[in-house]
């Protein structure tokens, strides 16, 4: 009896080790990763199925706000171009809206701030698991897209950023459902003040139904495209390209 138990225990431990190294090996296989990743599409379709395309993320009252809103990722873009813009208070800085649009735009921060403002107190959910509630002030992306006039072929919006990771600039992308969502704004203000540099000054994306890494900071160009294939690594974002994160970050 004892020996049978011992045998079971050692079998169990051996199986455990095998299973673990097996999981690592499976994770190293691109085919198996593809199988696991297919659930991303299922998740996106299921979440889109049960929610209206304009369903709003919960908005909070000022008393719900985090005392300290954590910033993550780049805290200070190191390029000389960004440093020059920062030194001049973003006087000569421009946001470009181009790609598959009929009327490309080049807008100063002043022009953007003169547009209708949406203020929203929302929760920022980081992929790592932490979350913080903050107040954002910005222009609904829809207004910029309407002004630029998307061409028929446009499917995605790519946000090109001023901060570099190695030699690659940060970038992110969303589809048109999130692009035209009422809470999707390009925020120039946070917590009743101008947007601080660690949080993406002068302009960052808020796309409230997705995780933090989709909320591109230091946005300087919005490009409408038909496919994400030709841009950097082709997966639609820096974290998607470099670290294999999902393009759809609704969960």
């Amino acid at each position: 009896m004892i020996s049978r138990r011992k045998m079971l225990a050692s079998l169990g431990a051996g199986a455990g080790g095998l299973v673990l190294s097996g999981c690592d090996r499976l994770d190293g296989s691109e085919t198996f990763r593809g199988v696991l990743r297919s659930s991303e599409g299922l998740t996106m379709r299921a979440q889109r199925l049960i929610s209206d395309r304009t369903a709003l993320a919960r908005e909070f009252s000022p008393s719900d706000m985090s005392p300290v809103f954590r910033s993550n990722g780049t805290a200070m873009p190191g390029t000389s171009a960004y440093q020059a813009h920062l030194a001049s208070g973003f006087r000569d800085w421009r946001l470009r809206v181009d790609g598959l649009v009929r009327r490309p735009l080049s807008l100063s921060l002043q022009q953007i701030r003169a547009m209708p403002v949406r203020t929203q107190i929302t929760r920022h959910d980081c992929v790592e698991g932490w979350s913080a509630i903050g107040k954002w002030h910005g222009v609904p992306l829809k207004l910029l897209l309407d002004a630029a006039g998307l061409r028929q072929e446009a499917r995605y919006l790519v946000f090109h950023c001023a901060d570099l990771y190695g030699t690659n600039p940060y970038y992110e992308s969303i589809d048109l459902i999130d692009g035209f969502h009422p809470q999707t704004i390009l925020a120039w203000g946070m917590n009743d003040a101008m947007l601080p540099v660690p949080n993406g000054a002068p302009l960052r994306l808020r796309v409230e139904r997705q995780l933090g890494y989709k909320h591109a900071k230091y946005v300087e160009r919005v490009e409408a495209v038909a496919t994400l294939a030709g841009i950097q690594g082709g997966k639609g974002g820096l974290w998607e390209d470099n670290s294999d994160y999902e393009w759809y970050a609704g969960i």
């Binding site: 049960i50 929610s51 993320a57 919960r58 995780l211």
Partner: peptide, 11 residues
């Protein structure tokens, strides 16, 4: 599901 930002809008 309650941790998902998309579910937060849906439900």
């Amino acid at each position: 599901l309650a941790m998902s930002p998309a579910m937060n809008a849906a439900w």
